[in-house]
Design a protein around this nucleic acid. Structure first.
Lengths: 186, 186
DNA sequence: TAAGTTAGTAGACGCTTGTTTACTCGTCAA
DNA sequence: TTGACGAGTAAACAAGCGTCTACTAACTTA
């Protein structure tokens, strides 16, 4: 073959990063191989380490791509349960999911990146959520709510996006809102 | 060296099974190697496949060792929130944890045993819990509660058993009971 | 005591992993 | 036109994986 290839450093770098984000979200850190990323990005495997240093550093860069936990947390305290419920309800049905969030949940058992995951969960969810809560034990209440969010991700990972017999959207949101209120109320 | 070794089929089999249960619980399926199990069990690696067939089948046998989700579910519906709260509260502090439960959470992303994990979560938690619930949408309510349980395991895995500033046991149980009530109430 | 069965052992097998090396060749300044 | 730079490539590297084979030696049975 010996295809002639365009020389495009920035473009290739971005293709690799996009492929990595997609794959890490779908499969988790250690199910994704360097060769898989290279194939998905249509780039040579050696370029991954040339541009990112190592698989671990590439993963770190993927985590850094996305900002805070999607806007959900940017609401006054009394709106948080409802907003979080809507967020989870959306996740329950659609195939669309936050790549970073999915990568976090699917990779939480890999020791090589354990610190990256932990720091990310802290800075993106746990701490901003905790900071918005008034009253005592804010950190603990935020932790329960975070457990609910990650647990939902795990269940979704086990059973797929569409649960067997989920009630209509209104009922789902009402139920989840009540649960988050129980988590977060002072 | 050439140590002479006692011939004890049943004993060796049990040592392997015990080591596997311990390691799978602590590290998760794919962080545990056959050689690690053999070393921990002080047995030859070839004996694992001789007695259990394969790593996957060994894992399946570990899952089969323990019965249902510990007695927590064997209570009338109105007691369930409190019982589940006590169960989780215990997990929050002590280092002791259900080996099977831990193995489930830590291995949930490994595709090779995905079906084993899913079936186990279904038969040990989701279905018995759902069966105890009266009223509509029992499956969905059970799913939320299960998400809370597994999510708690994930958080524990990320941050260790002792959260930074957890309130006293009474407050923890009260909070968790309220959350489970919000999940399970009809 | 002799033969057969089988628990236990050592080591290799084929494969996959992340990473690295040696190289080709397009691009652009001098 | 020439030379340096660097994007892109192919292949190899060492290490680790689950699995399997050939063998030793302890126990049982006749």
């Amino acid at each position: 073959m010996d295809e002639t290839r365009q020389r495009d450093r920035e473009g290739t770098r971005r293709r690799i990063l996009d492929a990595a984000r997609r794959l890490f979200a779908d499969l988790g850190y250690d199910q994704v191989t360097m060769r898989l990323i290279a194939a998905e990005a249509d780039a040579n495997i050696a370029l991954i380490n040339r541009y990112f240093g190592s698989k671990r550093e590439l993963f770190a860069e993927v985590l850094a791509m996305q900002g805070r936990f999607p806007g959900v947390l940017d609401f006054p305290e009394e709106e948080l349960p409802r907003r979080l419920a809507e967020y989870i309800a959306e996740r329950l049905r659609s195939d669309q999911t936050s790549p970073v969030m999915a990568a976090l949940i699917r990779s939480s058992n890999c020791p090589e990146i354990h610190d990256l995951i932990r720091d990310r969960v802290s800075s993106a969810i746990l701490e901003p959520l905790s900071a918005r809560l008034s009253g005592p034990d804010a950190a603990f209440r935020a932790r329960i709510a975070t457990a609910l969010i990650t647990g939902n991700g795990t269940m979704r990972q086990l059973y797929g996006p569409e649960p067997s017999d989920v009630p209509d959207r209104e009922a789902v949101i009402a139920r989840l809102t009540a649960v988050f209120e129980a988590c977060l109320s002072r």
